[in-house]
Design a protein around this nucleic acid. Structure first.
Lengths: 152, 152
DNA sequence: GGGAATGTTCATTTTTGATTGAACGCAGAT
DNA sequence: ATCTGCGTTCAATCAAAAATGAACATTCCC
C-alpha cells in the first residue's frame, strides 16, 4: 500500500534537511533544497516561507547561500515581482566540484607542511601519507563526477 | 630556509583542528589527531591535555569519540597507570569506510522515498537521480580506498 | 499620494554544541 | 588509613550559528 504523496514529500524534505545539515548546510537550506528537488518546478519566495513555516528573513539568507553555491537559481518573470527558485541543473555536480576543491586544497596544505620538514623526519613521511590520502579521495570523487556526467 | 620543526608542528596541529572541524569533528578532537599524526608515537593522556592546553575533561570526551570512530587506539602499559593514545594504523581507511557507509545509507534512504511514489510521478525520477548521485559518490570513495590500500 | 506586496537587513533571541572545572571513584604507594 | 595521581562524569558556562521579526527600501497598483 502506498502512502499519500504529500506524506512522502514531507518526510523527504525533513530527511534532506538533516542529511544536508550533516554536510555543513544550515537546516533550512537543506529543507529548501529538498522541497525544490521533490517538486522539480520553480517555487516562489513566499511559497517557500509558508510551506516550510519559516520567516522570510530565513528564506532570504538561505537562498543567498544556496545561490552563491550554485545549488539553485533565481528566476524572475515579467509582470511578477516575486522571486522564483529552482534547482540548478548541474546542482549535484557543483556540490561535488566543491568537495573536490576542498579535498585538493587540504592535500596541498598538508604537503606544504610536510615539505617544511627535513627529509629524515618521520613526521614528513606521515604527513605525505596524509596528503596522499586526501589526494586519493579527491581522485575518487572526480571519477564519481565523471561517471555521473556520462550517465546522462 | 627551514622553519624550526616545532613551529611547523604547531601550525600543522592548528590546521588539522580546523580542517577536521569542517568535517564534523569537534575542534579539540581534530587537534588531538593532528598531534598524534605528527608525532607518530603514543602520547599520554596528560601530555595531550597540557600540550593542547585544554581540560582533562575535554581529552576524556574527545578521546572517547575518536576511539569510537576507530581513529585512535588506547594503549596501556604494565606498571604505568596512564592511558596512552596513538593513531590506529588503518585510521584513514576507517574514516573512509565510515564516509562510504554514510553515503550508501543516504542513497538507500532516498531510494526508499522514491519507491514510495507511483511510477508516473516526476518526483520519483528525480529522487532516483539523487540516490544515484550518492551511490556514485560512495563508489568513487570506495575506489579511492582501494587505491590507497594497494599503495602500501 | 496612499497602500499593498516583496525582498533585504540587522539587532535580538534561541538553539546547539563544545568546553570547563569541581566532584567523584578507583588503584597504587607510603 | 591516608594520600596522590589518574580518568570519568556532569552541571554550569561559553561561544558560535541559526532563526526570528521589526524596520526598511523598492516597486507596483489604485
Amino acid at each position: 500500500m502506498t502512502l499519500p504523496i504529500s506524506r512522502t514529500r514531507a518526510d523527504f524534505i525533513a530527511y534532506m534537511g538533516q542529511a544536508l545539515e550533516a554536510q555543513g548546510l544550515p537546516p533550512i537550506a537543506g529543507r529548501m533544497l529538498g522541497l525544490l528537488i521533490f517538486d522539480g518546478e520553480p517555487r516562489s519566495f513566499s511559497e517557500l516561507a509558508t510551506e516550510l513555516g519559516v520567516s522570510r528573513g530565513s528564506i532570504s539568507a538561505n537562498a543567498r547561500h544556496l545561490l552563491a553555491r550554485g545549488a539553485i537559481i533565481k528566476e524572475n518573470r515579467p509582470g511578477d515581482r516575486q522571486d522564483y527558485f529552482c534547482l540548478a541543473e548541474q546542482s549535484f555536480d557543483t556540490i561535488l566540484a566543491e568537495l573536490i576543491a576542498r579535498m585538493t586544497a587540504t592535500s596541498q596544505a598538508v604537503r606544504g607542511f610536510a615539505e617544511a620538514l627535513p627529509a629524515e623526519e618521520g613526521a614528513r613521511r606521515r604527513l605525505c601519507g596524509l596528503a596522499d590520502f586526501y589526494a586519493a579521495m579527491a581522485g575518487g570523487v572526480t571519477q564519481a563526477l565523471q561517471r555521473l556526467s556520462t550517465m546522462r
